[in-house]
């Protein structure tokens, strides 16, 4: 999977950092500050503070594109905070940032609507890649993790038959890590149309994110786990 070129994203991606370790927030802030096209628009030390600050942003300049959300936090943990963010601002992509001590939380975060996840021993460049992939609508799951995650996924409200043939085509492409633009190109439709298909699929299946849709497709046998890109 090639990295999305800078030219695809003329618009600056806004990022919000939630982590109870100030040392982590400082590090991420410093690094993302050197990355062209990405702007950190705020940070919070726990889920409760994050929701309060996001509400302020929503009333003013607008909510960020991406939230880097630590999972283990006091007051309101990352899983619950993710669920509330997605419920209020479904357009926001949440990336679950988990330490290697709590990999079990990845599934909980994805179920709560997180688009993707990042382990805290990731390289700096992986952080930027994850942010750009989330904004591009790319589902990035490690094949092994995907298989494990899918087996425990909650049952969706609707069966496969509820999807139109076109929607099935779209969900397979989502699961193989295609962006809306790529899906549009592949199906010969506009990017906006592809995006509409995806959001219709999410509504029909009662899912909160493209990532959940991808895992659903794997579980329903529409795609093989090893076809899910990493």
């Amino acid at each position: 999977m090639p990295r999305p070129g800078r030219d695809e994203d003329e618009r600056v991606i806004t990022v919000f950092i939630v982590d109870d370790h100030s040392v982590v927030r400082t590090g991420l802030n410093a690094y993302l500050g050197t990355e062209p096209g990405i702007e950190v628009v705020g940070e919070a030390a726990d889920g409760r503070e994050a929701l309060a600050r996001l509400a302020v942003l929503a009333a003013g300049p607008g909510v960020p594109d991406v939230i880097l959300m630590d999972m283990q936090m006091p007051h309101l943990d990352g899983v619950e905070a993710t669920a509330r963010v997605k419920a209020t601002w479904p357009q926001v992509d949440v990336i679950a940032v988990t330490s290697f001590l709590e990999e079990a939380r990845i599934r909980a975060a994805l179920e709560a609507g997180a688009t993707g996840y990042l382990l805290k021993d990731a390289d700096a460049d992986d952080v930027v890649d994850a942010i750009r992939a989330a904004v591009a609508g790319e589902v990035r799951l490690d094949p092994v993790a995907a298989a494990a995650l899918v087996s425990g996924l909650r049952a969706p409200r609707s069966p496969v038959e509820d999807l139109t043939p076109r929607e099935r085509e779209v969900i397979v492409l989502v699961a193989s890590g295609r962006t809306n633009r790529e899906i549009g190109r592949r199906l010969g439709v506009a990017e906006r149309t592809a995006r509409t298909h995806v959001s219709n699929i999410l509504t029909k299946l009662g899912l909160a994110s493209r990532t959940q849709a991808a895992m659903w497709a794997v579980r329903e046998g529409l795609v093989d786990a090893t076809d899910v890109t990493s």
């Binding site: 040392v23 991420l28 410093a30 690094y31 330490s99 290697f100 805290k120 021993d121 390289d123 952080v127």
Partner: peptide
């Protein structure tokens, strides 16, 4: 995990910065 590894993660960010 709470102390050292969080600091190490931050260090990778600062080094890249």
């Amino acid at each position: 995990h709470d102390s050292v590894s969080q600091a190490l993660f931050s260090m990778t960010m600062h080094a890249r910065t």
